[in-house]
Write a protein that binds this DNA or RNA. Structure first.
Lengths: 245, 245
DNA sequence: AGGCAGGTTTGGTCATACCAAACTTGTGGA
DNA sequence: TCCACAAGTTTGGTATGACCAAACCTGCCT
């Protein structure tokens, strides 16, 4: 049936590649890139693909599954698969399931959270140095919304997230908003179990205001310090959700 | 236009109907987490799984494929799948294929590279502030290796990567080395096409030395500035690999 | 004991069939 | 004319069963 993979392998140990569906995958991959399959359009029917590539439906389905898990196509149970040219955040979404397992280990949560702190510290520093007028305005708006939600823990959480999100938007690099989304999504389960109260909200709000003020005053060190204090304090509460101590 | 979907029968976004393989996936997922399937052990034969779950081999294979693409098991062509409890960098590896597509767009490369610069700037700053003696020593070693490879562009590249890697190790958070690996892997294709020469190597080495010195002198601003200059200069060369201008 | 040959597993692929849900189409009523 | 509903067709999901080739295992033979 199909040709051979002329043994030009790349690596000795894991090399003898005899894959068939992979060919289809890369083919469809290429078609998506070349635009033959445009974003949003849907994939041909499986039965059409099998004649187009001269393979069995088994392989077609396998290929589709692979593409789907790579985020290149979106395959709902009974519907026609939809072509999706992935963005940075769909990429991060795809790892989500795996990250969930990483987080079964408390160290995983800690490491991920520390990464977030590290990045966000750099972001507030960046904000203090480079924030534009609109950014400052957005920050103030977010802060006010945060304040107005002090007594509504549900809404406070949302405005809290929104406040932090502002910093991720300032560099004008789409990777950062995607990262923010990823962080909040991944850490949300633990966050949800964190005790909440108007008092806690108030503390957090004050931290936000402190950060905001430092940014407005163009004080990167102050902003960074405030953010670190803020997030490290939050950690003490989060860790209670899985470290009984 | 259409009336509306003021929801009667259709479940709008995601959650509707039927998937059979997903059950198997989550089941095996759970078994991996619970330790019933230990890391490194191999999965039961497909024909065994189909009786264990009372499903057809089709579904079993689909489930295995899904697990494999999520990085929970490692499935080589003709071999028994091996259970793998994923780590941060296997997670990032899994996205790799997708990222490759993001990079088909020059903006994607730019955004990713900018992200790297941003993170690495924060890392060198962190290094200047918190590097331990061992870290400084490692940095000096890496720098020296880098110098000794000046005339061998191949080896220079390796030592270059290794030098930068030191900074990712300083926070002692495994996420950062994984990120470094991911960055270098993803950007490598473009990097490979970048013109190289002993002169370029020398320029890069001098940048490295400058960064190293700033770190040794505990000068975060200087280190950050030097790194930004270094990487932004490199970008000018990299962009030539896809922007013919 | 060591090594090779043959039988047995096991993953990869194909072909076929059936079901149920989604899509399409055609007809009839307001 | 247009909407609504029902029958017919497509299409994805799953199940069987079969075959091949490579990997694995077993046991004989030197």
């Amino acid at each position: 049936m199909h040709g051979e993979l002329t043994g030009s392998d790349l690596k000795a140990p894991p090399a003898p590649p005899s894959r068939a569906a992979d060919f289809v995958v890369s083919e469809i991959e290429a078609q998506i890139l070349s635009g033959k399959l445009r974003d949003g359009s849907h994939l041909p029917a499986e039965r059409d693909l099998m004649v187009e590539f001269g393979i069995s439906r088994t392989v077609v389905r396998e290929a589709i599954a692979a593409l789907a898990s790579r985020g290149l196509i979106e395959s709902r149970p009974r519907f026609r698969p939809v072509v999706r040219k992935p963005g940075f955040d769909t990429a991060l979404t795809a790892v989500g399931g795996m990250v969930a397992h990483l987080l079964s280990d408390p160290d995983g949560v800690k490491n991920l959270y520390d990464t977030r702190i590290f990045l966000e510290a750099a972001l507030v520093r960046n904000a203090a140095l480079h924030a534009r007028k609109e950014d400052i305005a957005a920050l103030r708006d977010a802060l006010q919304a945060n304040q107005e939600a002090l007594t509504d823990s549900e809404r406070f959480y949302a405005t809290d997230v929104a406040f932090h999100a502002v910093f991720y938007g300032i560099p004008r690099n789409p990777v950062f908003p995607s990262l923010h989304k990823a962080f909040t999504t991944w850490l949300a389960p633990h966050w949800k179990r964190m005790p909440r109260s108007p008092e806690r909200n108030r503390v957090n709000f004050l931290s936000h205001r402190e950060i905001c003020n430092a940014v407005v005053e163009r004080d990167p060190d102050g902003a960074e310090k405030a953010l670190n204090a803020h997030l490290n304090a939050a950690w003490e509460y989060v860790r209670g959700t899985f470290e009984p101590g």
